[in-house]
């Protein structure tokens, strides 16, 4: 399934973002997610997924908080998926979801997972109700993960690009 070409992320979304320069691809975030959300040692129940394109590309991906989410649009079970107004992430109604998986196919980021035990889809909810915030962020000892918004991430990317430019200018010719 090829990703949709244009999927704007909601400017208001709060989501778990990963810095691929810092991510070492260890997968401990997946274990944290499955353990804390479901008291399970099974990482197939994780709502965050590490993508490794060895040797150097590593990134964790959770729900990206799309502006007009395709997953909600394609869901044939009316109202099983809905945008959470507080954080732009997706709420799953387990009574309505029947695990058909259309949303999994549709998600351009591969951020929706079928829980192999409940047979319902699972999506990152930033560990709603957990005082310490998302378990994956707490687990990441490389500080690669944080809860942020697209605007904040964009600002950091600009700053980082500026620093790279300044370093390059400092380099002796």
């Amino acid at each position: 399934m090829s990703p949709s070409p244009h999927v704007p992320i909601s400017p208001h979304a709060r989501l778990v973002v990963c810095d691929p320069d810092l991510c070492v691809g260890c997968q401990l975030c997946e274990f944290a997610c499955a353990s804390v959300k479901d008291n399970s040692a099974n990482i197939l129940r994780s709502r965050i997924r590490v993508m490794r394109q060895e040797p150097i590309l590593m990134i964790s991906i959770a729900c990206r908080g799309c502006e007009d989410p395709v997953c909600v649009k394609v869901c044939p079970r009316d109202g099983a998926l809905a945008v959470n107004p507080d954080n732009s992430l997706i709420d799953v109604d387990n009574d309505k979801c029947d695990g058909c998986g259309w949303c999994i196919d549709a998600c351009p980021f591969g951020a929706i997972v079928l829980d192999p035990e409940t047979k319902r889809v699972i999506i990152c909810d930033l560990c709603a109700g957990r005082d310490a915030g998302p378990a994956c962020v707490e687990m990441c000892s490389k500080d690669a993960l944080e809860v942020s918004t697209p605007a904040v991430v964009a600002g950091k990317v600009s700053q980082s690009a500026l620093r790279t430019l300044m370093d390059a200018l400092d380099e002796p010719a």
Binding site: D21, V24, C26, Q27
Partner: peptide, 27 residues
């Protein structure tokens, strides 16, 4: 780039790259 083995919080694998010269691209 620093890379980890599975479920490793240390991450000791240090990927090295040659940028220029006759071995450019070695990684």
């Amino acid at each position: 780039k620093t890379v980890a083995c599975a479920a490793c919080p240390i991450a000791c694998e240090q990927v090295m790259k040659v940028a220029e010269g006759s071995h450019a691209g070695a990684r």
